[in-house]
Simulated scan of single mutants.
Amino acid sequence: MQWRAMRSEDIPAVKAMADEVHIAYPEDEAIFAERLSLFSEGCFLLEDVEGRPQGYLINHPWILGHIPPLNSLLMAIPEPASTHYIHDLALLEAARGCHHGARIVEDVAQLAADRGFSSVSLVAVNGSGAFWQRRSFRIYQDISLNDKLVSYGDGARYMIRDL
């Protein structure tokens, strides 16, 4: 399997994977299309040797300590942005346990560092906190985020990786 840049024709497959992997967090196809149009260099698709999509990662510049609402259009990348925000990482079952997630997270960290950012941030859901901690992310506690985290479900944690 190999990561490559996401293309607009990949959006239906990305939506299908999101629906399978993130059942409790449905998002419209327009959300994925907008993220790709706003920051294409932060959108990746994992393909198997036969070219079938097996996962994706979407990230974009954002404001540290802020959480974009689920299933909401951004309209624009904020200026100035202060972090690279991982909107979503999803891997189908066949791609799990093979370090594909770890590899793309390192690529995102390098992309953020190369662009002059000092952090990568995200909301960990579905008990994924341990995965992110192994990638050098730490839980960021801020009471002002609690209301927004509720929409991400029980156990959701805002996490940051310093670069």
Rank of each mutant, 00 (worst) to 15 (best):
W3K: 01
R4N: 12
A5W: 09
A5T: 11
R7C: 12
D10W: 01
P12L: 07
A13V: 07
A16L: 11
V21H: 04
V21A: 09
H22I: 00
I23G: 09
P26W: 04
E29T: 02
E34W: 12
F39H: 10
F39Y: 14
G42S: 00
F44R: 14
E47R: 07
V49Y: 13
G51T: 03
R52Q: 14
Q54F: 05
Y56R: 06
I58Q: 09
I58F: 15
N59A: 15
G65L: 04
P69N: 01
P69L: 03
P69R: 00
L70D: 07
N71R: 00
I77D: 00
P78T: 03
S82I: 08
H84M: 15
H87S: 00
H87R: 08
D88W: 07
D88H: 05
A90Y: 06
L91T: 05
E93H: 13
A94T: 13
A94D: 13
G101L: 04
R103G: 13
D107M: 14
D107S: 14
V108R: 09
V108F: 09
V108S: 10
L111H: 09
G116D: 03
F117C: 07
S121H: 01
S121Y: 02
S121V: 03
V125T: 02
V125N: 01
N126K: 09
S128P: 08
F131A: 01
W132F: 04
Q133W: 11
S136R: 06
Y140L: 09
I143R: 14
I143T: 15
I143N: 13
L145R: 02
D147E: 10
S151K: 15
S151R: 10
G153T: 05
M159C: 02
M159L: 02
R161E: 06
R161S: 10
D162P: 12
